[in-house]
Structure formats: structure tokens, C-alpha cells
């Protein structure tokens, strides 16, 4: 556990070097938040003020919280492992006296913790000023929400890990990673709340881990899912996390057995 904590801190420090990049990202997340909030609020207005349980205020809040979570959850790209598999550096990871998946998860979480405030706060602040945020007044949803965000980030890692492992078998991975981004973009609730999906798409989403990354944490933080319902959401997230991490371990073991690294 101490090792894990150290790796998390190292992940944090690695990313804290890029300050200007972080500021730029926060700015862009905020502008996109404005556009997204306009679309959600516009749709809710067109539906007569209420759409699948969202009114204008909660709809805008949804858009802003999603924007705040994009960077920690790492929606757009993670190909660190794939690059290391391609150039053989993964051999170094295998030689280290710790589990690679465990070490990369720690680094991923450290990055998320670093991004949480500097890239999460500006969109939330903009949201509070521009549209107002509908947030619960009791502490419990935030406590559960924090757990849910950690689970969401970890589920995102577990899925990226699996996608990256394709590098053991394929040379050019851009297509595979793009498909993951696309699936995440639609099914996680990134652009539109999963609760708005027509039935067939909602079923597809429920059969994937993607809603556990963004929709679930937002539901818990905003207390759309409260009490036992919130615990149910956390349980679903934990189940996906355990399942996909385990699958990732099995695939990694197969890939590592097949791996041939050149050189001495």
C-alpha cells in the first residue's frame, strides 16, 4: 500500500510540471462547457422545461460537472503502455519488482488527483457564475461522490489498459484507440446524459463499463442517485472495475508470454 501511495505521488508530481498546459486545458474545458450547457439547456427548454428528470438548472450542472471530470477521467487519450509495448520498453516494466497494472493504475490516479482541482475548478466556477449549479446541501452525496469519482477514474484506466494491450498483437493502434474514444464519447454520458438515450442505446450503454466513468459519478455527486440507489451505483462501478481489471490481467499475461523484445 505504501508503494502504491508513493507511485500516486510520483504520478501527481510528474503532471504538476506542465502548468501552462494545465491552464490551457482548463480554459478549453470551460469553453466547451459553455457550449454543452447551452445544448443541454436548449434541449430541456424545447422539451418543456423538464427532460428525463433534468430541469434547466440540473441539466446545466450536469454539463459543467462532466467538463470538470473530463481531465481526471482522461477521456481522450492514454497510450503510454501501447507505446512502451511497441518500442520494447515494457520489458523494463516486467523486470520491476511490482505488478505493472498496479503501478500504472497508481500513476493514472496520481495524474487524476493533480488534474482534479486545476482543471476541474475553472469549469465549475464558470458554471456557478453563468448558469448556477444545482448541488446538494448535505455532505453525504459529496463523500459518496468522491468514492464514485475514484472508481470512475479507475474504470477508465482499466478500459484504456485493455485497449492498449492490443499493441501486443497490432503495430498501428490508432484505429483501436479511436474506437475506444468514440465509445467513451457516446456511452459514458460525455456529451449527453445516458438517461436521455432512446431505449436501444440505453441498453447498449448498460452492457458496457462506459457509463461507470462519468454518468455514475455525476449521478452520485448531484444526488440524482441517493442513499441505497447511490450505493447501488457504486456497486455497479466496483463490479465493472473488478471485471475489466481482471480481464486486463489475463490479456496482459498472454501478451507478455508472446512478447519478443530485440536486443540483449
Amino acid at each position: 500500500m505504501r508503494l502504491f501511495a508513493t507511485l500516486v505521488v510520483l504520478g501527481f508530481r510528474r503532471w504538476s510540471t506542465y502548468r501552462l498546459a494545465t491552464a490551457a486545458g482548463a480554459f478549453t474545458n470551460t469553453v466547451f462547457g459553455l457550449i454543452k450547457a447551452s445544448i443541454t439547456v436548449g434541449a430541456i427548454g424545447a422539451a418543456g422545461g423538464e427532460l428525463a428528470g433534468y430541469d434547466a438548472q440540473t441539466g446545466a450542472t450536469y454539463a459543467w460537472i462532466v467538463q470538470a471530470l473530463i481531465a481526471p477521467v482522461n477521456v481522450f487519450n492514454w497510450n503510454e503502455l501501447a507505446l512502451r509495448i511497441r518500442d520494447g520498453d515494457v520489458a523494463i516494466d516486467l523486470a520491476r519488482p511490482m505488478d505493472p497494472q498496479f503501478a500504472y493504475l497508481a500513476g493514472f490516479l496520481g495524474r487524476a488527483i493533480h488534474q482534479f482541482i486545476p482543471r476541474g475548478a475553472p469549469p465549475l466556477l464558470a458554471g456557478a457564475l453563468i448558469t448556477g449549479l444545482a448541488l446538494p446541501a448535505t455532505p453525504l452525496p459529496y463523500a459518496l461522490g468522491l468514492v464514485s469519482v475514484v472508481l470512475g477514474v479507475s474504470v477508465s484506466f482499466s478500459v484504456w489498459w485493455l485497449a492498449n494491450l492490443a499493441a501486443f498483437w497490432l503495430i498501428e493502434l490508432r484505429g483501436v484507440l479511436t474506437l475506444n474514444v468514440v465509445a467513451m464519447g457516446i456511452l459514458s454520458g460525455l456529451v449527453i446524459p445516458v438517461h436521455w438515450f432512446p431505449d436501444w442505446l440505453a441498453t447498449v450503454a448498460a452492457l458496457t463499463p462506459y457509463p461507470s466513468m462519468l454518468q455514475a459519478p455525476v449521478d452520485v455527486i448531484t444526488a440524482r442517485a441517493e442513499g441505497t440507489a447511490a450505493l447501488g451505483v457504486l456497486a455497479v462501478q466496483a463490479a465493472w472495475l473488478a471485471g475489466v481489471l481482471l480481464l486486463g490481467r489475463l490479456v496482459f499475461a498472454r501478451g507478455a508470454r508472446k512478447l519478443v523484445v530485440q536486443g540483449g
Binding site: I39, A43, A46, A47, L51, A52, E172, R174, G175, V176, T178, L179, V181, V182, G185, I186, V191, I192, W196, F197, P198, L201
Partner: peptide, 26 residues
């Protein structure tokens, strides 16, 4: 595979419009 990825991105963008209009008419 790159081409298909690009097609998928185009479809993802449109999916947002589609889902919105699955709920509202205007």
C-alpha cells in the same frame, strides 16, 4: 482502420444530435 476510426468519430458527433432529437422535436 484509420478510415473506420474517422467514420466512427463522424458518427459519434452526429449521435449527439440524434439523441437530442430522440427527446425533442425542435
Amino acid at each position: 482502420s484509420d478510415l473506420l476510426g474517422s467514420v466512427a468519430i463522424g458518427l459519434m458527433e452526429f449521435a449527439e444530435v440524434y439523441v437530442v432529437f430522440a427527446n425533442v422535436d425542435v
